[in-house]
Design a protein around this nucleic acid. Structure first.
Length: 274
DNA sequence: CAGGTAGCCTGTTAGC
DNA sequence: TGCTAACAGGCTACCT
């Protein structure tokens, strides 16, 4: 479940490996991964081109390619991008292989086949359907505490749902939403309208702090996540509430509770989070 | 039009 | 022990 810290870590691990590399050819082993253009065209257009940039927007990875093209990758839950030697055996979850000009391969691997790729002209990027509705990146320097407070002003609905809404702010998924709300000491089902300026200040601070600390720990590996070199993260050791139902709250020792909310589990401490 | 949810997937685990 | 159901989870499409 790569969220902002995991995608950031993947970018860090891949950038020095693939930047400036030319993609000699591409094997698409599972067509439906490629949304646009058609798989055959995708492989044809990308072959012979050079990677000139590796960036992140929310949970999306953006590879700038010569010819004014952009490769947009979304890993969804179990997707991986792996920089590997070609003799490493492929398994049945390897769906796309980029052959690089140094003999190495960049592989897209996805157990659950949810991840996607698009190859589009760079001038379509800002209007592209997956990106044009995204809110500001959760770590965007211009997303200050005051801007954050203004954005939440007048928003109705539960605060956790809003944090997960990528059109509000992009990059936060279920794990970090749970952790951020714990750190801010806010109950996940609290209505956004009920939050005081003090609450909002704590929420903003918790959001930045949790995401930055998770990046420092190279992301959270609960089951599937690894970076571009196959290394797991370690932030799972610091999780306060996520996945810790019936375990003690690190702050007060009371038991963590789980409630299902819109198909997702909210984990929280009923005594710390009001 | 906003809000809710089924569907996409498959490996793992909880429960009977 | 062996089976089934629930769960994990982001996002789109579709529904009310």
């Amino acid at each position: 479940m790569p969220e902002l810290p995991e995608v950031e870590t993947i970018i860090h691990s891949l950038r020095p490996k693939v930047l400036g590399r030319t993609i000699e050819r591409v094997d698409v082993l599972l067509d439906k991964v490629i949304r646009e253009p058609e798989a055959e065209q995708f492989a044809k257009h990308i072959s012979g081109r050079t990677i000139t940039g590796v960036e992140r927007r929310g949970k999306h990875l953006l590879f700038n390619i010569t010819g004014s093209l952009v490769l947009i990758v979304h890993l969804r839950m179990t997707g991986r991008l792996l920089y590997v030697a070609p003799d490493l055996p492929r398994d049945k979850y390897t769906h796309v292989v980029f052959h690089l000009d140094n003999g190495k391969e960049l592989r897209f691997h996805d157990m659950r086949q949810f991840g996607t790729m698009d190859l589009i002209p760079a001038d379509r990027l800002k209007n592209f359907h997956s990106l044009n509705k995204l809110g500001p990146d959760a770590l965007d320097p211009s997303l200050t505490r005051d801007v954050f407070k203004k954005m939440l002003k007048g928003r109705t609905g539960q605060i956790k749902k809003i944090l997960l809404d990528q059109t509000f702010i992009t990059g936060i998924g279920n794990i970090y939403a749970n952790e951020i709300l714990w750190k801010a000491r806010i109950h996940p089902e609290r209505s956004a309208t009920s939050l005081t300026p003090r609450d909002l200040g704590r929420l903003y601070h918790a959001m930045r702090e949790v995401l930055k600390t998770a990046i420092d720990h190279r992301g959270t590996t609960i089951r599937d996540y690894v970076d571009g070199e196959g290394n797991p993260g370690s932030f799972q050791e610091l999780l306060a509430v996520h996945g810790r139902e019936n375990q003690p709250c690190p702050l007060c020792g009371n038991f963590i509770v789980r409630v299902k909310n819109g198909g997702r589990s909210a984990y929280f401490c009923p005594s710390c989070q009001k």
